[in-house]
Structure formats: structure tokens, C-alpha cells
Design a protein around this nucleic acid. Sequence first.
RNA 1: GGGCGCGUGGUGGAAUGGUAGACACACAGGACUUAAAAUCCUGAGGUCGCAAGACCGUGAGGGUUCGAGUCCCUCCGCGCCCACCA
Length: 852
Amino acid sequence: MTRYNIRETEEKWRRVWAEKRCFEVTEQGNKEKFYVLAMLPYPSGRLHMGHVRNYTLSDVVARYRRAQGYNVLNPMGWDALGLPAENAAMDNKMHPATWTYSNIEAMRAQLKSMGLAIDWSREVTTCDPSYYKHEQKMFIEFYKKGIAYRKDSLVNWDPVENTVLANEQVVDGRGWRSGVPVERRKLNQWFLKITDYADELLSALKSLDRWPEKVRLMQENWIGKSSGLQFRFDVTGSRDQIEVFTTRPDTLFGASFVALAADHPLAKKYGAGKPGYDAFIKQCQAAGTSEAAIEQAEKLGFDTGATVQHPFIPDHMLPVYIANFVLMEYGTGALFGCPAHDQRDFEFATKYNLPILPVVIPEGADPKTFQLKGEPYTGPGKLAHSGFLDGLETETAKRAAIRKIEDMDKGFGTTIWRLRDWGVSRQRYWGCPVPMVHCDACGIVPVPDDQLPVTLPEDVTFDKPGNPLDRHPTWKHTSCPSCGAQATRETDTFDTFFESSWYFLRYCDAHNDKEAFSAKASKYWMAVDQYIGGVEHAVLHLLYSRFFTRALRDCGYTVPDEPFAGLFTQGMVTHMSYKDVDGKWIAPADIQSGHNGGMFRISDNAPVTPQRVEKMSKSKKNVVDPEDILSTYGADAARLFILSDTPPDRDLEWTEAGIEGAWRYVNRLHRLVTEANAVKPSAVSSYSAATTALRRQAHQTAAGVAADIEAFHMNKAVARIRELSNAIGAFTAKDDGDRAALREAMEFMVIGMNPMMPHLAEELWSLLGHQTLLADTAWPKADPALLLADTVTIGVQVNGKVRATITLPASAGQKETEEIALADPHIVKSLEGKTVRKVIVVPGRIVNVVAG
RNA sequence: GGGCGCGUGGUGGAAUGGUAGACACACAGGACUUAAAAUCCUGAGGUCGCAAGACCGUGAGGGUUCGAGUCCCUCCGCGCCCACCA
């Protein structure tokens, strides 16, 4: 028995593909393009299984589309700027650049061992000045266009990372990386006006019909559009006004209080000095934002004693509270409460004994007698006790109330957004320098084109906290590009999401030194036809990129509105975690199973117990190193296992048994082809029934695998290949016709498995005697006649229960099917003593005999 | 609290409203072997039965239908996202 030498064979074909530059592409106007993109990796040092899954999926798509005749762009690069490099520099006394570039070397080698059909000539590294100089230019263009601006603002300050975080990077009040509670600080920062694009970013989501519904919903919620009324209350006995926003202007007549955020300017004015004020404010600021904290937090208020005038009811005054549930960041930082129709206001009013007046009456209820049943009514209805709004439906009443307020010149109908502008300033070294100069005389001056890029200084130290750029002895000192006077460089660097917001455009024209990318290249390759990555980027990266592309468009770049026409989000890779008797986590690689099924530590045979299947993480030690897998089992087995069982959008549990099973199958396929007696026969005119069945299956497999891959049902595609290989294994060739069919079936199988197991497929293709590369071979065209079965086996039911199966010609019609079904002995027996009332016949599908 | 999704054998999972459990993993039995590994063959949703077969079966309950894992309603459980959002 010949053994398949995985290592040598896989390396051989990778070498051939590289030497022949199989996957390097150029723009070819006469050929339809297909842009496959996997989210670019951060060069942390080693590939993890999530990467392997991601790039396996993108490679399946790339190789498949290539076989379908597309000009496929499948690029790779490195998201190389960011905090881990700087932290590593501090830990290891190593320059971030050294750390980053050596990581890229290591990871590139690992990636290459996966046998990916990537155009490596377009490799992009974002920390290279030849990359970031273009984004510095973009930023200056944004600035001139008013898309980039500077403002003082309260920012989320991460005290561990010593930098600002965007709202999107704060999770449950904690830094997304450091996990420590963020502080509020006022800083002068660079922002991008993503809010100007809120409406477009929201409405265009509808056009993204090849995006997961889930991701579109998440973005919709994140953008958070609310329409309503913004208006001013007059404070009694003062010229102050309190501006509030509401989505329920229809309930204004049910208002019983006004509430201010603790950090609202008027809160201090009306509350300061009153007993209990200081303590109350302190309590508000201490409140957590975690799930548990929100769940338990009581609605608390502080009565300022001030009152406001109701806009519609003369001499009706509402008390002004400071309340812990009002957010300064949302709306106007103040609201009016209508307890009868809002859960939160209801709780507040109950606690402080404020009036609860229902003004929206549900359909069918009598306005005179309607009473709340211990909870607010939030549904639609007709207005009551509401003056000029009485009798109107909720939606009509909203419009009427807005019109009235607008007539009174006290406010206006408006839309507010949850989305905030994107703060892009970071006070760290290993990022792209913001290309701006601060001049005492001229203010903020962009660095002129001919002085770009502004590069990072190399001689920096990380021994002290804070921004190394700021304390560098000379770097920030420069002259003003405008007046020539002494000036200071901006020492902030960009948020690293800046780089990943346009890298897909750079791939289109990676070596262009003059511009970020040419209009021609962008026009040909964009948009990305299939983007693949983790769902964790559903709002951050994917929203920023959609915005960034539009901002570039508005600065005159040739780009489509939407950068990613198709998106697929893959699930996580999980693994069982294990603990020893002392409760310490034990890595799977250090565990062996005992004879009785128990698990033991290899080093000392101490028993270990499985915990749970969870995301691979260093802390739980349940990680499997792809490099070990790739060198032990080969790339094809690893790819096959990842694709074979679990649908790509679900979490994949990595198991030893699974990868070994995949490895055995790779070997079996090799044996199947090398041991088969398949020679290229002379002309064949007719086939036996068994042989036709094999041919039929081969053609159906070619068509079915294609359909499955296009639908991202990779597990089903693999199952089809296995079915065909099982059929080939069971087939005995008796004559030349059989051998011809067998060979055809094997070729179809090899082409079909190529996207999943490219090395083995290429080897088998060569073993079948081909001089040309499988990588350059077209997907087989299935014979339509063979796709249709000549016979079908269908179930015959009696009263909905299957009592028999019958096999009949596929062409059998209604009448013939019914006759065969009713003649079946099982059916005859089942119908004994019964009267047939009705026979449902769906030819080729089912027969159901209704009898009683 | 709001939104979305998912519940199918021991396990991963298949199934345009039409034979539930494809294809695998794990398991059991057998062949080969001195033995093991590898490989090959066979079996298998559950209950009863030597078998033929019968009955039950897709989280629970109801409904629509000739026919429901699939559609509708109620409930339970799990997962993800958002969240004192006015």
C-alpha cells in the first residue's frame, strides 16, 4: 500500500503554484472579476485557529470562483499598528517595529503553509510609511472637507492603556482590551464626522442584501435613529429654558415632571447648595453601567424645587428633578416624564408620588373609566385629557403636537442619533501620526503633500507612562508650513481602525506610490464581492469602513458607496477546557486519555476533568496551535476538518478525533485514486445501468458542490464529495465504458474537492495523468440530462404515515404513480378493511392515501 | 428591559410543507494480524420482537394542512447583540 506523503506533496504543490504565479492577478477588462477578502490579521506572532478557519473559508471561495472562470483577487496583509506591539516593547525591551515585523515573518510562513490561493505580490503592511502616507493625505482631505475636526470633549480614558477609546471600544463601561473601568476626561481630540453620514449609513443597510440580517440589525441599532420633538420648557420665575427631546410628543398632556442629567449645567444651578445635593450627585457618578448594575439600579431623583411651565396648559407647573437615569450624552440631557406611558417614568413617579395621568386610551377602552393596571400602557390608542389632541390616534397626535410647538416657536420636530462622532485620536506611539502642525500664529496647519509621510521617530523609550511622541526630545518640534515660525507637531496617532477602514482599496493597487489607489484599479476590483470575518466586527470595523469609503467618495476618490457587497460572518473556534485536581487549567496537548475513558495529564498521569466547550483562550489554556496541526496532519486535513462538520456560521468545536478523521479521509482519497483501475479508454458509446448511475452521481456532485459552496454550506459540499468517493470505492469497472466512467467520476471528484483540499486535489489530478495544473482547470459543466434522475424512490403514506416506498420512472405521471402505489403489497395490507376516500399524488414526491 | 437567533440520535449535523436522522465522529461486532495499529466489511433513533413488523419519536402544549422538524399561537430552555436611549 502506498502511503501518501503529505508533507512533501503539499510543499511540492505550493512551490509549483508560487513558481507559476498562479494566483497573481491583473486587471483584465474582458474577464469578470471576483474580489474575495478575509479580514486582515493583526500580527500577534502566531496564527490561531480563528485565522485558519477564516482563511480556509476565503480560500474555498477564491479557488471555487477561479474554477468558475472569474479573475479572482484574494489578497492578504497585516493590520500592523496597535497597542500590543507597544506593550510587547515595554515587556521585552524591543522596538515595536522589530516585534511587529518579526511576527509578520513568522505568520506569513504559517499562512503560506495553509496553501492559500493568495496574490502575495499585493501584500500590504499598514505600519509601513508607504501605506500610511496615503491615509495621512486622506485625513488632510477630510480636514479640508470638514469631515475631520477637533473639539474639546469628554472622552473615555483608559487608565491602563493611557489613551482615549471610542464609544465603540467601551464595553460595559470598560476598555475593550484592558477590561478596566474607563474614566471620563475632557480632552481636545480629533474626530471624524460619522454622524453626518448616519442617515445614509442607516438607509443603505437595506441595499446590503448579501449581508447577514443580524449584522445589519446590529448596525441599525448602533446608529440608533429616533424621531421626535425637541422643545424648551420655560423655568418659572427665570429666563432659563430647559430643552428636552421626546419620541412621544403625543403624551405631553400626561407629563408630570422634568428630569435633568446629573452633569446637566442647570442641574448644578438649581441643585447646588441644597441639602443632599452633593451626596446625590456623587451617587449618580458612582453608578455602574454593567448589566447587573442597570438591572438593579433604582430610579432616583433629587427635587431641585424649581418648576417649569407646561407648554400647552396655562398655570400648570412641573417639578424639576435631577435623576440618575438621565444621560447627558443622549438627546439634550433632559427629558419630561409621562408616567402613564413609560415604564421608567412610571417607576419614578410611583416612588416620588407624582401624578400618573393616562392620556392614551387603548382601542375599546372608555376614556372616562380607563385605568392602568399597575403598569404603564405603552401601546397605541386614542388621546384623551389632552386638549386639542383629544380623539386623535397616537401617530396623528405626535404630528399635531410637533406642529403646535413649532407654531409656538418653542421647538421643532427632529431626528436624533445614538451614533457619536468617531474619536480617532490616540495618545500612543505605535500608530499613524496625525499629519498636523500646531502653530501659535496660524493655528492648526496640515502638513503639505510634499512633506508626507510624517513618519514615526525610531529612537523612542517606553520606560515611562504616557505618549513617547510627546516626550521625544526633537520630533515634535518643527516649523509652521504656513508662516515658517516655530511650531509643534500633533503628537496624537490614529485609532488603528483607521488603517483597516481602507486597506481593501489599497489591495487593488498595492504598489502605487503616487496615490492610495488608482481610479482604474478601484473601478475594476471594487466592491469586495465576498468579505469574510468574525462577527465581533459587526459594528466597529464594518461601520467605520462603510463611513470611510463614503468620506473618500466625497473627497473625489473613485469608490463605490458600499465597500463590501457580500459579507459572511464565521463562528468561533471552541475547544473543551480541562482542569486538574488542583483546579489549574490544563492544555489539551498535555492530556492523554486512559483505557477506561478517563483523561490524564501526560507528565504525571494525574487525572484531569473536562470543564466546558468554550472559545479558545490563553487563560483557559484550551488552545490548539495551528502550527502543530499543520505540521502533523497537513494543511488539507486541517482545512477539511474545519469545513466538514459544522456550518461555517456556527461555532466549531475543535476535536482530536475530528482532525484525525479528516486526516484518515485525506489518505483514503489518495488510495482510492492510486489504486483504481482507471485508464483513459477509447470511444465509448453506451453504459450499463450501474455505470450510468455513477456518472449521474458524478455530474450531480459537480453541480451540487458548486451550489453548496455558493451558499456557504461547506459541510454539505464535503458530504457530497464523501458520497461520491464512497460510490467510486464501491464501483467495479468491468469494461472500457466502466473505466471511462470511473475516470470521469474521479476527475469530477478531484475538481470538486479542490477548493477544500487543494494540495491533494492537485496531486491526484497529476496522478490521473494531467500535464496542466488543476489550479488552472475549469469547473466541470454537468450534463443536464444526467442531473435529472431516471428513477425516483418515493414514500407512500396511508393517513400521513409512511407504509411503503416505491421506485418508479421519474417520468411517471399522476395516474401511473397512483396505480403503482395502490398496488404495493404493504399498502394493500394497510388498507385492508378500509375505504379509500382520497389519494393525494405529487409525482416524484409523495403519495398519501386518505382512508378510513 | 428591548431586539435577533436557535432547540433534531451518544456527538457534529442533513432534510424547496412531502420517505426525519444524509454525510461524518464516537461506539459495537466481524475480517486481516502472533498481537496491536492501520485498513476493510457489518450494525445501530427509542421500545417490543428470532424475524416480518408494530408503536413512539425533531424542547412542551395547541392550531392550520391530505401531510408539519419546517407555517401560525402560547409556554419553557439556551445563545448573541443592545440597553436607565427619553
